[in-house]
Design a protein around this nucleic acid. Structure first.
Lengths: 170, 170
DNA sequence: TTCAAATAGTAGGACGACCTAGTAATGAAC
DNA sequence: GTTCATTACTAGGTCGTCCTACTATTTGAA
């Protein structure tokens, strides 16, 4: 969590007011800065909850994706699409999961370009334990009522759709 | 932007539905995943807008902070508090800004532990040009009406306050 | 049939964030 | 005055992200 004492005021709000005075409309900048900061907070909280399990959020998400798949097996390419990661990031994550014996690489039966990633039994157990740890801390998301959490999701989904993150209606 | 073609469906929403079926309440996870993804989108858009100016968003924020300060000078420590960055991150950012001659390091007159960072004239000019570039693309935040942007800020500020990011009332 | 374009994945490098551990300076208790 | 905890900053390393090549394989058009 950056290991700082909290400030007695909101630095993002203060910057927005200065911005307003000197430059112009600041609402957009304030929203963007808030997203950046909340992401940091959530990332820290989630990684702290996962650290005892030897996982990061990126690796955890990869394990969940594999657990959700029919056979516990997916091509690297598909993993990258679903997790919305660069192919090299997928390589990196799978490397580390494989070093921990949580997944295995294998060959595709018909397309020899493709690498299939399969979750191991140990990977499934690790994912279960990590999920308990994450839900125990609500993924680090605090301070919102259920309806507000849904509202937040709705707003951010609008942004993602407008940014071209996906094409179908919600 | 990860340079991927968009999926024909929302992968975060799909994961949430699978989660719902197999594990339990998924609203929190969906919100957290949305924050993570939108942060990536905004970071990419903002960095792309700043790249022609030789800046990243982190360095830009540091320049803005200095411009807002009375004398264009702040101690490293204060910069870290306001930007909510780890001290080593401040060192890293100031190193790069200094290499670009956008800021200078100096000594504190009475406390020799402290390093004062001062923005240069070139730094002020760079910040102005970068601000134009950023506002031209609305900081990458698209798809929201004014009221929705304000609502997003309000929700995220609640999260930050609950997480102990600052102590005063909004 | 052949060969160029597209596809899947990896290697190497950059960047920004963090952490741990260190140095140097300050300040306060004794 | 000494000593020792605190403070400000930096060095070195890890992690995850991205980018630009690059290899191997597949596909399809001439």
């Amino acid at each position: 969590m950056s290991s700082h004492h909290p400030l007695p005021f909101d630095p993002i709000d203060r910057a927005a007011r200065l911005w307003q005075d000197r430059i112009g409309p600041s609402a957009t900048m304030a929203a963007v800065t808030n997203v950046m900061r909340v992401q940091q907070i959530l990332q820290s909280a989630v990684d702290a909850a996962l650290r005892p399990h030897g996982l990061t959020f990126a690796r955890y998400e990869a394990l969940v994706l594999l657990v959700f798949s029919r056979q516990g097996t997916l091509p690297m390419k598909i993993m990258g699409q679903r997790l919305q990661l660069h192919p090299t990031s997928v390589t990196n994550i799978v490397d580390r999961l494989q070093a921990d014996r949580l997944v295995e690489r294998g060959s595709h039966p018909t397309d020899r370009r493709t690498t299939l990633v399969t979750i191991t039994e140990g990977g499934r157990q690790r994912q279960k334990a990590a999920t308990v740890a994450l839900t125990d801390v609500d993924f680090g998301l605090v301070g919102l009522e259920q309806a507000q959490t849904a509202e937040l999701t709705a707003l951010l989904t609008r942004v993602r759709r407008a940014a071209g993150d996906f094409t179908a209606p919600s």
